[in-house]
Simulated scan of single mutants.
Amino acid sequence: MRTRKPVGLIAATSLGLLAACGSDGSDSGSGSGSEVQLTVSSFLTEDHPASRGFEAWMEEVTERTDGAVTFETFYNGSLCGAADSIACAEDRTADIVMSVPAYNPEMTLANIGSVAFQTSDLQANQDALNKLYQDNEDYRAEYENRGLTMLYTFNNSMPVLASVEPVSSLDQIAGMSLRASGSMSTGIAALGANPVAIDPAEIYESLERGVVDGATFPLESVVDYRLTEVAPHVYDLGEYMGSYAMNAYTMNLDAFESLSEDQQAVVREVSEEIAGSYVEEFLVPTMEENCSALAETGTTVERLGPDEVGQAWAERAGDAQRAAWEESAAELTDAPAMFDAYLSNIEEASTGEAPTTAEICAGV
């Protein structure tokens, strides 16, 4: 497994949960500790890049603990649904869950990653958030106070619009009813669209029956849910919106603390490595596969303009979303300072190379 320079997830937290690893990245000598099987729940498919990344995570953890830590995994929401994931980790229905802060608006600080229009550099964005979790005590406490610890946060691909009918410009989105959640809802509302909250499992039927005109999703979800069968016109919104929805693998704190210190160190070590390579190793290759799959059915991912409309949209909606998040977080932390630290982390981690979804698909 190739790894990028890590962002430093392994650092001491207020509960002393994170163990520092050797600077050479060698095995922690972590065979010590009793055997344990952890239950993992995801509402995603097994082929989703997030699932592929976590399969690699589980394999590495098992190997580096000499087989002492193993996993039983449930996909497709068979154990916990999307909106229930955090609660499932809290009550330990599952030891580890794939969670989405946007589906849990009470996770106010975690939803800083749901503020869109900040960057199109997906790896820099998730590196910035993982570092923010390391550095900001209030952010960590939001998880710890619920008996949770975040393993790592990671990006979806940038959003696309899957539409039943062709769309020729951003202006044409005004008046459309579109499935959206989280910051995507306020984002498309700023274009005059009508956002509709629909559970992911019900979107296909909603499009087929004309309940909505289209759905906004990352590309991998459009393919996973086979949405182009009923909404065959796909457009790149991420060129202007950038990263808009972060996910996190989240672990029950008691389950984490039940591991030996060596096993805990391995969990943090592997989390850092997967987070640091996720976009290159898992997300972009899956996007390329999805682009190819769509192309085989005659579907391409198209740009939407004009640029002046998109740029004005990004500035207007980005400022509004930041202001709304800061207002919601004002009683929990120094919200402006936290957001400034987040933007500083993005700038520090950015490589300047951030192809759009349309560009990635065009290169396949």
Score class of each variant (00 low, 15 high):
A197G: 06
A116Q: 06
G210I: 08
G210W: 07
I86D: 01
A110L: 10
L219I: 14
V222H: 07
G298R: 10
G147D: 04
A255R: 09
G175C: 08
S277P: 02
P49Q: 08
S28A: 14
A314T: 13
R2K: 12
P49V: 03
R4Q: 11
G31D: 12
N247K: 07
N155W: 00
L161A: 10
E288K: 13
T153N: 11
D127R: 08
D224L: 07
N155I: 00
S260R: 04
E272D: 15
L79A: 08
V160N: 10
L227N: 09
P195E: 06
E353S: 13
S292A: 15
S183A: 15
Q134C: 14
T300G: 13
S42E: 01
Y240H: 09
F54D: 03
F71Q: 00
E165D: 14
L207Y: 04
T45A: 15
V115C: 09
L109E: 02
R179H: 13
V69I: 15
A245Y: 06
E327K: 14
V196N: 08
A83Y: 03
G31A: 14
Q172C: 02
I274E: 08
T357V: 15
G298S: 11
R4K: 10
A89H: 01
G22K: 12
E60Y: 03
G182Q: 06
I10V: 11
M246Q: 13
G305I: 05
A362H: 03
V40K: 01
E137V: 14
S26W: 01
A335R: 02
T119V: 11
L237K: 08
P105W: 09
E63C: 00
E272Q: 13
S163Y: 08
S26L: 09
T351C: 02
S221L: 15
A255Y: 01
S260N: 06
Y278L: 05
S34D: 12
D213H: 06
G242Y: 10
Q37G: 06
V61A: 01
A68V: 03
A201R: 13
N290M: 11
E205I: 07
F339A: 02
L227F: 12
E308N: 12
A20M: 06
M287W: 05
S41Y: 01
R2A: 11
A275T: 04
M246C: 05
N130A: 11
L259Q: 03
C80G: 02
V301T: 07
E302T: 09
E302C: 01
A83D: 06
F43W: 15
A358F: 06
A68H: 11
F54P: 00
D171P: 01
Q172W: 03
A56V: 07
D135V: 12
P355Y: 12
E315R: 13
V36T: 01
S42H: 01
L161D: 06
E348H: 05
A314G: 05
E272W: 04
Y249N: 03
Y75Q: 02
P166C: 10
V164H: 06
L132Q: 12
A94N: 01
V279C: 07
G33H: 05
E239A: 13
A190C: 11
G53D: 08
L259F: 07
G310R: 10
L283F: 08
P306W: 07
G175N: 08
M1D: 11
S221T: 15
G310C: 09
I96S: 00
A295L: 07
S243F: 11
S30G: 15
N145W: 00
N290C: 14
T351V: 03
V222A: 12
